[in-house]
Computed example of a mutant assay.
Amino acid sequence: MPGLMLLLAGSVVAATPATPQPWFEFKDYPMQAFEKRWEGVTKFELLIAQDGSIADCKVTESSGHQILDQRTCFLASKRAKFRPARGPQGELAYGVYRSQAVWVFPERQMLNANPGPDLEVSVNKLPEGTLEPPVVKLAYAVDAKGNAGACSLMRSAPKQPSALVEVGCQQLLQRVSHTPVITPTGQAVTAVRTAAVKFNAGN
């Protein structure tokens, strides 16, 4: 586990969408799923290549219906365009972008569930200037063996106090299991991942 100063030394940049969202609309419903009134949330990861193209799509949590999951990856790969990730030295890198598609009929919009944080951390007190909700969205580098390196606040995220960012990075890299990023050809690559850490203040 490298020291915290090393983790924060290089600012990494996550892959970010260059096309507006949403990428999924009600008119995209597969006919079979529409007729059977199937609903669900498909969570997925896109592997963004160094040129910003989509190299792969993986379903990380199924909607419960294969046809909806397949439609999700098809549409995301077809419609989404990205600005590539950059590593701690400013070099182009693979990026992992995570999102979800909510397949729901218009009268049941309550199914639009928030994906929630990747990690929750308890602290005695939140620092002054903390924005609500007390969440830090982080970008961090992983090498071809899955070892985590530099970690920083995502550029598109709200500016939380640096103390929260430091603790968030430290806790994330200590407590979250990291696996290598694999391309469709089976090659393990250096990449930039993202995560959201939520802070809960004590009484």
Rank of each mutant, 00 (worst) to 15 (best):
K81I: 03
V13F: 01
P84C: 06
Q32W: 05
T179N: 09
E35Y: 11
E91W: 02
C57W: 05
L153C: 02
N203K: 12
P161W: 02
A85L: 05
T16H: 06
K81M: 11
A141G: 06
V59H: 07
P88D: 03
V96D: 08
D118G: 14
D28E: 08
H178K: 03
M31T: 15
R79M: 08
K36N: 13
D28M: 05
L7H: 10
W103I: 03
S152K: 04
L6K: 11
L153K: 08
Q187I: 11
V59M: 07
A148V: 08
V142E: 06
A195W: 02
L126G: 11
G40C: 03
A76S: 11
S152G: 13
V167L: 15
S122I: 12
P161T: 06
K58N: 12
L172S: 01
Q50E: 15
R193M: 12
V142R: 02
E45C: 09
E45R: 12
W103N: 08
N200G: 09
R175L: 05
K58F: 04
P17N: 01
R108M: 08
Q89H: 07
V104Q: 09
I182N: 07
G52W: 00
C169M: 04
E128K: 10
M1S: 07
S63H: 04
A80W: 00
F74K: 14
I182T: 15
A113W: 07
K198S: 14
T130M: 03
L46T: 06
A157C: 05
G202C: 05
F26K: 07
I48L: 03
F24I: 15
C169N: 00
F74G: 12
V121N: 10
M110L: 11
D51V: 01
L92S: 12
F105T: 02
F82S: 10
T16K: 09
V142N: 03
P20Y: 01
K78C: 01
C57D: 08
R155A: 15
A188I: 01
E61F: 01
Q171D: 07
P184I: 06
K137D: 13
A157N: 04
L138H: 04
A139F: 09
A113E: 12
K159I: 02
P30D: 07
T72C: 09
W23V: 07
K43T: 13
Q66L: 14
E120S: 15
P88W: 02
R83P: 03
E166W: 03
A188N: 13
P30I: 07
L131G: 09
Q89E: 13
A191Q: 06
V104S: 15
M1L: 08
A80Q: 10
M5A: 15
L46S: 12
F74N: 13
Q100P: 05
F44K: 00
F74M: 13
